[in-house]
Design a protein around this nucleic acid. Structure first.
Lengths: 167, 167
DNA sequence: CGTGTTTGGTTGTGTTTTGCAACTTTCAGG
DNA sequence: CCTGAAAGTTGCAAAACACAACCAAACACG
């Protein structure tokens, strides 16, 4: 395409893929976020391939949540994951089957369940955390420490804005 | 914030969902990005629900790309989308069927195709752009102009880092 | 030329994901 | 008790996606 196109974006050289200049096209954060998610997820899947925990978008968060909050209930996890209960239930099923989580009936509420990690799940959670940290280090290290906080803050705030709207 | 809990993150009050404090849990950008993507995509789907273009993750980008670069080839789109050719081909199929895109045989290379938007597709592209801009405005407006550039730069760079690794 | 390799696209298939609806059990309030 | 709401489960049907196999055109090059 003709290089006559002025570089509108004030953020470095225009991003070119397959000979197409992407930047201006979408002009939007959303495109970067969606693409970045795609890349992040794929990369995570690769790194976790050796763990038995089959490709799990939700599974990762679920294990970490249960590990950190022993006794959580599936419905709470569902809310964090932004999924419905059936979907969450199946995620948990898989984790129970693989021997990483354990279900108990919540005492005090026979309808609900309390979730706990097994020793195996505990180990898994640790692996996962380590892998995530490696990924962070590898791909986000270019962000200066003081900028990291701001970056995180922006992500968080946007996320909260969205959640509010979705409810 | 509760005085008992030291606020590790220098980025505002801890994020609590369903009574669980999420922040420290994942501690990572990746979690925010993945969640944010989920929210962004859902929100986009909603906003686009009235357009015939059935829920399309790839479709959105495809239409915009073709609109901006008349004559692009499916393989180029595939590369941008980070999908394989079959997947991309089907996306294009759908858009052709719905009358938004038009295929032509590339002159000069009989194997390849050149894609163009139809008038309908043109209108669709405009709608999509408008919707995306609204979404941006609604959810990312809190970012000060001078910070936007930096935010974008970080997203972009992380994205590029990832892509390099995926290839 | 002609032959082997690469590139662009299509078709077919099987798996995974996921959202919705319906159903069971339990709780909470009056 | 009775009713309505909440927690999970099951069933189902649709969508997305990755992989492999396949055809046709282009290119490289001896």
């Amino acid at each position: 395409m003709p290089p006559t196109t002025p570089d509108i974006s004030p953020d470095g050289p225009p991003l070119t893929l397959a000979g197409l200049q992407i930047d201006v096209l979408e002009g939007a954060f959303s495109w970067y976020i969606r693409s970045l998610d795609f890349a992040v997820s794929n990369d995570l899947d690769r790194r976790m391939a050796h763990l038995d925990m089959a490709k799990g978008k939700g599974k990762i968060t679920a294990v970490l949540l249960v590990d950190r909050y022993p006794g959580v209930r599936p419905s709470q996890i569902a809310e964090v994951l932004l999924r419905d209960r059936p979907a969450t239930g199946r995620i948990i099923d898989a984790l129970v089957t693989s021997g990483d989580l354990r279900r108990e009936t919540d005492r005090g509420d026979l309808r609900a369940q309390s979730l706990f990690v097994t020793p195996k799940g505990q180990a898994l959670a640790n692996s996962v955390r380590r892998i995530i940290q490696e990924q962070e280090r590898e791909f986000f290290d270019f962000i200066a420490p003081q900028d990291r906080a701001q970056f995180m803050r922006m992500l968080k705030r946007a996320y909260l804005n969205m959640r509010k709207k979705l409810e």
